[in-house]
C-alpha cells in the first residue's frame, strides 16, 4: 500500500541521510521524498511517499523513524484530511504547429508554459500527484524530452470544527 508519511526533523547535518539510509536498510521503497524548512527555525519537514506491504511493516517504519534522535514527530497522514501537492516540469517536443494544441491540453490543468524554444515547450504543473500523472500521460504522445518532479509535499487541512466556529463572513 502507498502511504504518505510526514516527519518533523531537526535541521541538522546528515538528517536526510539518516532517514533515507534507515528506510533503505530496512527495505522500504521510497517513491518520493521532499524536504524543506517549516515555520519554526531549525525545524524541517519531510514528506515521504512509501510503498509498504502491510500494516505491520508500516508500523515498523514509523517506529523506526521515531527512534531517530533528530526526528521529532512522525505521522502517517494518508487517511487524514490532507492537502497534498506536487510540482512537475515537463519539456515537450513541439514545433510551431503543435504549440497551440498543447496549450489547449494543459489549460484545464491550470498548468502554464514557462519556456518556449524552437523545438520544445516547457510546462509547469502543480497539483495532486494523480493530476500531475494525468497531464504527463496526455503529453507523452507528443514526446517528453525531459521530466522533473518535486515529489509530494503535504499537510493536514485546517481543523474542521474550528473553521465552523468562525463567523461566516466573506474574506473577499
Amino acid at each position: 500500500m502507498r502511504r504518505i508519511i510526514t516527519a518533523t526533523v531537526q535541521n541538522k547535518s546528515g538528517v536526510l541521510n539518516r532517514v533515507t539510509g534507515l528506510l533503505q536498510r530496512r527495505q522500504f521503497n521510497i517513491e518520493s521524498i521532499s524536504v524543506g524548512p517549516t515555520e519554526v527555525e531549525g525545524i524541517s519537514k519531510m514528506t515521504l511517499v512509501v510503498e509498504v506491504e502491510d500494516k505491520q511493516k508500516l508500523e515498523q517504519l514509523t517506529k523506526q523513524l521515531n527512534k531517530q534522535i533528530d526526528i521529532l514527530k512522525v505521522s502517517d497522514i494518508t487517511d487524514k484530511a490532507i492537502v497534498s501537492r506536487e510540482l512537475a516540469l515537463i519539456k515537450v517536443v513541439s514545433s510551431g504547429q503543435l504549440r497551440s494544441e498543447i496549450k489547449d491540453i494543459i489549460e484545464p490543468f491550470r498548468a502554464s508554459v514557462i519556456d518556449v524554444s524552437k523545438d520544445s515547450l516547457a510546462v509547469q504543473v502543480t497539483g495532486k500527484p494523480e493530476k500531475v500523472e494525468a497531464l504527463i500521460e496526455l503529453l507523452r504522445p507528443y514526446g517528453i524530452k525531459e521530466l522533473a518532479r518535486t515529489g509530494v509535499t503535504a499537510f493536514l487541512r485546517g481543523n474542521k470544527p474550528q473553521v465552523a466556529e468562525l463567523p461566516s463572513y466573506s474574506l473577499l
Partner: peptide
C-alpha cells in the same frame, strides 16, 4: 524500545 514490539511476533 517500542520498535521491538510487534516487529517479528504479533
Amino acid at each position: 524500545d517500542p520498535a521491538e514490539i510487534g516487529k517479528n511476533v504479533t
